[in-house]
Design a protein around this nucleic acid. Sequence first.
RNA 1: GCCGGGGUGACAGAGCGGCUAAUGUGACCGACUGCAGAUCGGUUUCCAGAGGGUUCGACUCCCUCCCCCGGCACCA
Length: 469
Amino acid sequence: MPIRVYNTLTRKKEEFVPLHANRVSMFVCGLTPQDETHMGHAKTYVAFDVVARFLRHKGYHLFYLQNVTDIEDRIIEKMQKTGRGWKDIVNQYFGEYLEVMDALRCDSVDVYAFATDYIDDIVEQIQGLIQKGHGYVAEDGSVYYDTTTFSGWGKLSGQKVESLRPGARIAIEERKRHPADFVLWRAQKPGEPGWDSPWGKGRPGWHIEDTAITIRHFGPQYDLHGGATELMFPHHESEIAQAEAYTGITPFVKYWIHGGMVTVKGEEMHKSLGNYWPVKAALKLYEPEVIRFFLINVQYRGPIDFAPELLEEAKRSYERLRETTRTVEAERRRAADTGKADHSLMVATTKALADFDAAMSDDFNTREAIAVIFEYGRVVNKALETGVGRGALDDAARAYQTFGDVLGILEPAAGGADLVEGLLDLIVALREDARKRKDFATADRIRDALAAVGIVLEDTRDGVRWKRK
RNA sequence: GCCGGGGUGACAGAGCGGCUAAUGUGACCGACUGCAGAUCGGUUUCCAGAGGGUUCGACUCCCUCCCCCGGCACCA
């Protein structure tokens, strides 16, 4: 099934056709490591991790590049407040970000590109823009992009230069020729870090690092650019202006994809609002897979209004999902190959895989894909009640493996040594003897003791099965 | 004001021009059961923000209005 992607540039779902056959280049705006990684970050990066996983699952050779803005106003602010070096601050928070990503099983990024490692590319690109008449140098040594020189301005966000009014956040800079102009290179101020450039010491503007990094790695065009919707304007708009003016090649990016925001009680998450949820705080309450499940339980373009109660609901929901996979594991351990055809379960498995693929192919609709897994789970559970042969169980296990791999959930329980399995079979058999004697005290004692070490016993119509918790 | 995205059953949240609107959570009933757990079946909700239009038929398309979210120049 062809993949369809909602492209912000065209405002509709388009069939996904990479620029170069099977090769896909994807860039996602990374973060500025200057504070704790919060649930908003997690939503964005989990969403694009799933995109990457699915594209790879579909056989594309994907290269996933993410930048790290390691020099920026807020980092400098933090420097000045704490007296620490910028790199020190970046290392701390980026390190923490990696820990969080690791916990959430976001492992699909190939390269993290730090802005300050690309100063040469950035300078070269700014020089090119000046030469082509798209940039101008202000008296203080800053360089600005002249937005009036780029006819494609606003094509991503639908904004028009004329209709913009200054936002409340920042005053118009008087050095700009036009209020819509933006900084390519920011002249150094006393006490700030700076890099050499033809215009004196300074640092890159916010937007230029992304085009410098992607042009270095991907060239003048690439397939997918992701980011949260808040970055659509002005950041992504500016990227287009820079890259297309610099290279003369259009479109800079074939598909722009934007993810929805995390809000809290309808407000954007902000430290100043006191509603800031660092991922680490959430990880203290719920296991990583639950948080990941929670984040992909909506279509990526939609927002999530965060509340701890919703994590609780996600936990219950997710446990139901995972429970079925554990049951399949348990039944596989004790199912002999009966040679039974189990045709209906096999058909259901095939259908579930196809439906899952269709859901994911429709603009990475994880919500729909999860619904498919639940529906399939009911069929599996029903089949399990009546008994299933080994072949159909293996089939089901493989399907769950696929679902889990693509979504980054349903990690198999830690594999056990033969010794453990042998001992458990023995213990279970002894407990069965006790139960037959109606010695329930002993039976319960065994079950409780096993539960304490993470082994759950379940009595079913046709015997006992054990699962790892 | 401008640009973008939304308003779906108790809650969360999908799809679709026509099958009583998926899936999950919650609640209730039942089955299974020594107990527990897991599971299964059923019930619970429906004039889909308001109004109008198109159509044989709209939750789905169009228009108007109301409300919410994001952006409006260094936020994932």
